[in-house]
Amino acid sequence: MRAIQITEFGGPEVLNVADLPDPVAGPGQLLVEVSRAGVNFADTHQAEDSYLSKTELPLVPGGEVVGRTADGRRVVALTGSGGYAEKAVAAAGMAWDVPEAVDDVTALGMIIQGASAWVLLRRSTHLEPGETVVVHAAAGGVGTLAVQIAKAWGAGRVIATASSKEKRELALELGADVAVDPAEPDLTAALIEANGGRRVDIVLEMTGGRVTDQSLRALAPFGRLAFYGMASREAPSPVQPATLLAHSTTIAGMWLAHVFQMPGDVMGTALRELFGLVADGRLRVVSGGEYGLSEARRAHEDLRARRSTGKLVLDPAR
Rank of each mutant, 00 (worst) to 15 (best):
A42S: 15
A42G: 15
D43S: 09
D43F: 06
T44Q: 08
H45I: 15
Q46T: 14
A47M: 09
A47S: 13
E48Y: 06
E48D: 15
D49M: 12
S50T: 15
S50F: 09
E56D: 14
E56K: 15
L57G: 04
L57S: 06
L57E: 03
P58I: 13
P58M: 13
V60G: 06
G62N: 03
G63T: 14
E64N: 07
E64M: 05
V65S: 05
V65T: 10
V66Y: 00
G67P: 11
A70D: 15
A70P: 06
A70T: 13
A70Y: 04
D71W: 05
D71K: 02
G72Y: 03
G72E: 06
R73T: 00
R73M: 04
R74W: 07
V75H: 02
V75I: 08
V76I: 08
V76N: 00
A77R: 12
G82P: 00
G82V: 01
G83E: 10
A85R: 01
E86P: 07
K87H: 14
K87A: 12
A88E: 07
A88T: 07
A91G: 13
A91F: 09
A91Y: 12
A92F: 06
G93C: 07
G93H: 13
W96C: 05
W96P: 04
D97H: 12
V98W: 04
E100H: 13
E100L: 13
E100P: 03
D103Q: 00
D104T: 01
V105R: 00
T106H: 02
T106I: 04
L108D: 02
M110F: 09
I111L: 07
Q113F: 10
